[in-house]
């Protein structure tokens, strides 16, 4: 591998940008392709397919063997609300391999004592998301019950096309939320993407059980509907 390719690839990965390392298995030469870069011909089609599916593969083109190694950003989970459910969700999500961030402007909730070893921001979601924008490789769970805190984050998640968006609250609460989001300019198709009530229907009662249900939904979205669905549709 060319050392420059490795540096370039790792730099893109640090920036949460999708990239493919293309290696010619005949002569060992490689190059880094960023998502959106133009690659001509059959190779370009294979590269596009790799970005869509997230699956690395060896392809044969014109009698030559190429290996396409796809590097998609690690799935991330942003939780709005440093609430009891989030305290259970944080360690579970970490074990399941998600980069987790908890955001809550209420400093009494968002304290390091309640969230040891968690990336925690005691700020309004808008402030944090302006610095670290959401993306298609991020899931968002809004858990505060407070429209002032949840709604701006939900709107940002819809805009960024997060692969999973869920919001805590009963059907009645959600109906009022839908009204507010429509008034804020979100389309009803987009709003339909919000899972509410949040989480898999497993009869979860305690905060920890609800955390399991939420994480289950996030994983289901990651492995089926979300990123992979794009491939199936293509």
């Amino acid at each position: 591998m060319d050392p420059l390719s490795l540096k370039k690839l790792n730099a893109l990965r640090r920036e949460r940008r999708a990239a493919v390392l293309l290696t010619d298995l005949g002569d060992g030469r490689d190059r880094v392709i960023r998502e959106g870069d133009t690659v001509a011909g059959a190779l370009g089609e294979a590269v596009a397919r790799a970005f869509r599916s997230g699956r690395s593969a060896t392809v044969e083109i014109d009698g030559r063997s190429f290996f396409l190694n796809v590097h998609l950003p690690a799935p991330r989970l942003v939780v709005i609300g440093a609430v009891h459910i989030s305290q259970a969700l944080a360690p579970m999500a970490r074990i399941a391999g998600f980069d987790l961030t908890v955001i809550d402007p209420r400093t009494a909730f968002a304290s390091p004592e309640r969230f040891p070893d968690v990336t925690l921001h005691a700020e309004w979601p808008d402030e944090v998301l302006a610095r670290a924008p959401l993306d298609a490789y991020t899931a968002l769970a809004a858990l505060t019950h407070d429209p002032k805190i949840d709604d701006p984050a939900l709107l940002a998640a819809l805009k960024a096309e997060c692969f999973y968006i869920g919001a805590l609250g009963s059907r009645k609460t959600h109906a009022r939320r839908v009204e507010r989001l429509l008034a804020a300019g979100a389309s009803s198709e987009a709003i339909d993407r919000i899972e509410a009530p949040i989480g898999l229907d497993i009869g979860a009662a305690s905060p920890a059980e609800i955390a399991v249900a939420v994480l289950g939904s996030v994983i289901a979205a990651l492995r089926s509907r979300g990123l992979v669905a794009k491939e199936e549709a293509a």
Binding site: L6, L9, N10, R13, R14, R16, A74, R76, R94, D99, T101, T119, A132
Partner: peptide, 17 residues
């Protein structure tokens, strides 16, 4: 996202390389 998030990808072979 933040530097802390990136560091959580410890053990990443290409970063180690």
């Amino acid at each position: 996202m933040s530097e802390a998030d990136l560091q959580s990808r410890e053990g990443d072979p290409l970063m180690i390389a």
